[in-house]
Amino acid sequence: MKFSSKIQRCELSPVRKFYPYEVAAVEKGLTVHHLNIGQPDIETPKEFFDAVAHFSDSVLAYAPAPGENCFLEATRRYYESLGFHITCDDILATYGGSEALQIVLSCILDEGDEVLVPEPFYPNYTTFVNITGGKIMPIPTSPEEGYRFAKRELIEPRITERTRAILMTNPGNPTGVVLSREEMRLMADIAKEHNLFLISDEVYREIIYTGEKVSSMLEMEDAAENVVVIDSVSKRFSATGARVGALISRNRELMDQAMKLCQGRLCTATLDQVGAAAMYDRLKPEYYTSVREEYRRRKDAVVEALSKIPGVEFRSPEGAFYLMVTLPVDDAEKLQYFLLQEFQDNGETVMVTPAEGFYTDPALGRNKVRIAYVTNPEDVTRSIELLGLGIRAYQEKQGC
Rank of each mutant, 00 (worst) to 15 (best):
R9G: 12
L12F: 11
V15A: 11
Y21R: 12
V32W: 01
V32F: 01
H33A: 08
N36Y: 07
G38C: 06
D50P: 00
S58V: 14
V59K: 08
A61W: 12
C70L: 15
T75A: 11
Y78Q: 13
C88S: 14
C88P: 15
D90R: 05
L92I: 13
A93R: 00
G97C: 09
A100H: 10
L101K: 07
V104T: 11
S106N: 13
S106H: 12
Y125A: 09
G134R: 01
T141N: 03
E144N: 10
Y147I: 00
T160P: 08
T160L: 10
I166Y: 02
L179D: 10
A191E: 10
H194I: 15
L198Y: 08
E202A: 01
M217F: 13
E219V: 05
E225F: 01
I230A: 07
S234L: 08
F237R: 09
S238V: 00
G241F: 11
L247A: 03
E253P: 14
L254D: 07
A258P: 11
M259D: 05
L261M: 08
T270E: 14
A276T: 13
A277F: 12
K284E: 14
P285N: 11
Y295T: 02
D300Y: 05
V302A: 11
Y322N: 08
V325L: 04
V329Q: 07
Y337R: 15
L340I: 07
L340T: 09
L340V: 11
E342C: 10
F343C: 06
E348G: 04
V350K: 02
M351Y: 07
A355S: 02
P362V: 02
G365E: 12
N367I: 09
K368M: 11
R370H: 10
Y373I: 00
V374N: 07
R382C: 04
I384K: 03
L389H: 14
I391R: 03
A393P: 01
